[in-house]
């Protein structure tokens, strides 16, 4: 057994400095297109190329709806003038309505918040990236986030997947079983708009049965984007900083 202790102690600490400093390692994020100004006909063509309608051409300006982007790369590969690319990962954005404006969890949850992760029809990638939050690179425990298997202890419901019909009732029950105050974080394009799978008879186009408070786009969003979403929902990341480079987000919504 002691071998493992020694091995563990000898392993260098790879943990990211995020959120204190941005993470610049290559391959930590797939990136996402950002609003770009292009000649009018090129813009229209690019918007058409997008398989999920994440791009919209307004004259010379192509705006991006991150909630629809599935990283098909069709707006950058095989085209003469590609979209500008945002290599960051602070994509999470609050989602509120006039009737129910976004409010982060209170100060009591800044030191420690418990998360229930529910898979409502995910392809495995978002779930894997959520799991990676526990690995030594991202280590969300250092920020006071803990995953719990029961909604009774959970403050945050983290949903991945498009919301399949077979999971609807279980998802609803899990949300109802959580004590107030509670927040819902929808992770991944599937959970926001259904991606390429929905809507269909077997699945909703995203999680609409529950009041989603924070949306983390991406297919899948890299771990740091999810972490950013968690910081946002606990009020530890400024909502304004989110969507840097994706300024059109709010309008596109």
């Amino acid at each position: 057994m002691s071998n493992w202790v020694i091995r563990g102690l000898r392993t260098p600490v790879p943990t990211t400095r995020f959120p204190a400093a941005p993470e610049r390692a290559r391959g930590a994020s797939p990136g996402m297109p950002r609003a770009t100004v292009l000649p009018e006909e090129v813009a229209a063509d690019l918007a058409r190329r997008c398989p999920t309608g994440a791009l919209a051409a307004h004259g010379e300006r192509v705006v991006v709806d991150p909630a629809r982007c599935v990283h098909s790369f069709r707006c950058v590969r095989g085209v003469a003038s590609p979209m500008d690319w945002n290599h960051g990962n602070e994509w999470a954005a609050p989602r509120g309505t006039d009737a129910r404006p976004f409010g982060p969890l209170g100060a009591a949850f800044r030191g420690s918040a418990h998360i229930l992760v529910v898979d409502a029809g995910d392809c495995g990638a978002c779930l894997a990236e959520v799991k990676h939050l526990n690995n030594p690179y991202y280590n969300m425990h250092r920020l006071g986030f803990f995953v719990t298997p029961t909604p009774r202890n959970a403050d945050i419901l983290l949903v991945v997947g498009s919301g399949t019909v077979n999971m609807r009732w279980a998802l609803r029950k899990a949300y109802e079983a959580m004590p107030a105050p509670k927040r819902v974080v929808a992770v991944g394009t599937c959970a926001l708009t259904g991606s390429v799978f929905a809507p269909s008879f077997a699945s909703d186009a995203g999680i609409h049965d529950l009041p989603v408070d924070v949306a983390v786009p991406g297919s899948p969003p890299p771990p740091l984007a999810i972490l950013h979403g968690l910081l946002l929902v606990t009020g530890r990341a400024p909502a304004a900083r989110s969507g840097s480079g994706l300024v059109d987000t709010a309008k596109a919504d």
Binding site: T150, P151, W169, A170, K173, A174, E176, A177, P179, A180
Partner: peptide
């Protein structure tokens, strides 16, 4: 005090 049904893991 809010009373909720017991948590059953989401079984039907």
């Amino acid at each position: 005090l809010a009373r909720r049904p017991r948590w059953d893991g989401g079984v039907p």
